[in-house]
């Protein structure tokens, strides 16, 4: 077992543990904090994949924006759940069965697949090539159209969120 493998196991354990805490934590605020830890763990997992750009992006977007948004929402709506001690709904055994069944199914499928053995591909000198990623996103031969559609989606989501949450009818 190499050092990197140990590091990965640590990261995975921490991430999965905090993910469990996200769904198990009693208070929403704590769930959000655990979520942040889980997201940082995922960023670390990206780092072990030598995708440093996405590792940093993960922190910037998820921790810097999405998690803060979630915390905001949790704060704004905190009164609602205070008098209800149960955090899971009545159907949670069925949900556990569904999630567990899915995991079992996935693991079973993995056990029959032999494509794991392929070694990681070589990266150019100096890690991933961000310039290539940028070109792929903006070149007409690449993914220009999906990229533009994604940006359009963001704008639409932004306007929609403002409209929905802004209560413009007043």
């Amino acid at each position: 077992m190499t050092g990197l493998q140990v590091v990965f196991l640590l990261i995975g354990a921490v991430t999965l543990a905090s993910a469990v805490m996200v769904v198990a934590a009693k208070r929403v605020m704590h769930a959000a904090l655990w979520l942040i830890l889980a997201l940082v763990g995922v960023a670390a997992a990206y780092a072990t994949l030598e995708a440093s750009f996405f590792a940093v992006m993960q922190v910037a977007v998820y921790v810097g924006a999405i998690a803060i948004l979630i915390i905001f929402a949790a704060m704004l709506t905190r009164r609602s759940m205070e008098d209800d001690p149960a955090r899971l709904n009545k159907g949670w055994p069925a949900a556990l069965l569904a999630a567990g069944g899915l995991l079992a199914g996935l693991v079973y499928l993995f056990s029959r697949w032999t494509g794991f053995s392929s070694p990681a591909r070589a990266l150019p000198e100096g890690g991933e090539n961000i310039a290539a990623l940028g070109l792929a996103l903006t070149a007409p031969e690449g993914f220009l159209v999906p990229f533009e559609v994604a940006s359009l989606l963001l704008v639409a989501a932004m306007i929609g969120a403002i409209y929905v949450a802004g209560d413009l009818r007043k």
């Binding site: 069925a94 949900a95 069965l97 999630a99 069944g101 899915l102």
Partner: peptide, 19 residues
């Protein structure tokens, strides 16, 4: 009208179907 129950049913059905 509970979305989560629908989703549980959907996931379970998908599981059964794939099995």
């Amino acid at each position: 009208g509970r979305v989560q129950m629908y989703m549980v049913l959907a996931v379970l059905l998908v599981l059964v179907a794939s099995v």
